[in-house]
Design a protein around this nucleic acid. Structure first.
Length: 337
DNA sequence: ATCATTTGACCCCA
DNA sequence: TGGGGTCAAATGAT
């Protein structure tokens, strides 16, 4: 519990410092000669995102405290009573938690459940659902206890097509993922210090999925409807509505290949995931996915413009300067070949 | 020994 | 009251 508290506190401080840094950056960018209105707007969004995250962490801290109090009093309720209290608290929390759901359909040729999404999950239940041919599996974030991460997901085979998994995500990951889901990432193109590699891995995993989400653009082109959020919606702005969108991501997402592009080209950028967030002013969903909304030409422009102005990009993890590779460059044609 | 999965039971809510 | 979501003991895997 103390560990969790410490971790949250650290994250909280990081978010606040980040907000501060971003504000400073914004101040500099207010000079119309020095930057574009787009980058200012982007900075503002990132600032809001940081403070929103910080507030979320504070809220989490409160609820954790509540739980502690219920069971923590000396001579307080014992086993059964305590169990009931905790139970009730969990349900109360379930209701008060910001909840929003995403549905991602994943074509799985291998039939492996669940398809990788860059996060480590632990199965905690399975239920037969009325009217459904296949049972629904319940997963929660592995770091639920260690880091108080409340993200969960539901996985269910589609009735219509058993090769498709419908995955419903709930809650936002507040954890720092340390597991190595994609080992290859660590060894590819990482010129940075080994010290920061572990921290980077989780970011890299997200990065992978971000481009997997980029794949969704392709799906949209194929005529599969996709509801999109308003521009510049950020993960820290919970969407209250449910079942926001449905996407199909083929298994190839889990390989080193998106859209026929060798994704290793992307991972050579892993020195700073945030660079990509900045480079691509794209939407990010609530568990770190991004939805690229711009045309190829938009991208080329933004990439060249923002890579050149890269200080924005360094801000996300400015506390880890070693993460930031100021000299990196890449050929955008690799993305859109 | 530790961690993940399975599964029956329990709770909440529509 | 029944369906969906979660818990936690039992079991399995490493």
């Amino acid at each position: 519990m103390e560990q969790t508290k410490g971790l949250n506190q650290g994250t909280l401080i990081n978010e606040l410092i980040q907000g501060l840094e971003l504000t400073k950056q914004l101040k500099i960018n207010l000079d119309p000669l020095a930057s574009s209105p787009e980058s200012c707007e982007f900075l503002i969004q990132k600032i809001l995102s940081s403070y929103d995250k910080a507030l979320s962490i504070l809220n989490l801290g409160d609820s954790v405290g509540e739980l502690h109090q219920i069971g923590g009093h000396g001579g307080g309720p014992k086993s059964e009573d305590f169990k009931v209290h905790c139970h009730k608290d969990v349900y109360k929390k379930r209701k008060t938690l910001p909840r929003w759901t995403k549905q991602v359909c994943v074509c799985s040729e291998t039939g492996v459940v669940p398809p990788e999404d860059g996060y480590s999950w632990r199965k905690y239940g399975q239920k037969d659902i009325l009217g459904a041919n296949f049972p629904r599996s319940y997963y929660r974030c592995t770091h639920r206890h260690a880091q108080g991460c409340l993200a969960t997901k539901l996985v269910q085979k589609s009735d219509k097509d058993p090769s498709i998994f419908e995955i419903t995500y709930r809650g936002r990951h507040t954890c720092i993922q340390t597991s190595q889901v994609i080992p290859a990432l660590a060894s590819i193109g990482n010129e940075g210090s080994k010290q920061n590699r572990d921290e980077n891995q989780s970011q890299s995993q997200e990065l992978l999925f971000e481009f997997g989400a980029g794949h969704m653009v392709k799906i949209e082109d194929l005529g599969i409807t996709e509801e999109t959020f308003p521009s510049f919606s950020f993960p820290s702005t919970p969407i209250e509505s449910e079942n926001v969108e449905t996407n199909i991501i083929p298994d190839s997402v889990n390989e080193n290949n998106f859209l026929g592009i060798d994704s290793r080209a992307f991972f050579s950028l892993e020195t700073s995931e945030s660079d990509l967030f900045s480079v691509f002013p794209c939407q990010m969903d609530d568990f770190g996915l991004s939805q690229i909304q711009h045309s190829k030409s938009d991208f080329s422009e933004m990439i060249s413009a923002l890579v050149a102005n890269s200080p924005i990009g360094s801000l996300d993890f400015s506390l880890n300067q070693a993460d930031f590779e100021p000299n990196f460059s890449f050929d955008t044609s690799e993305f859109f070949a």
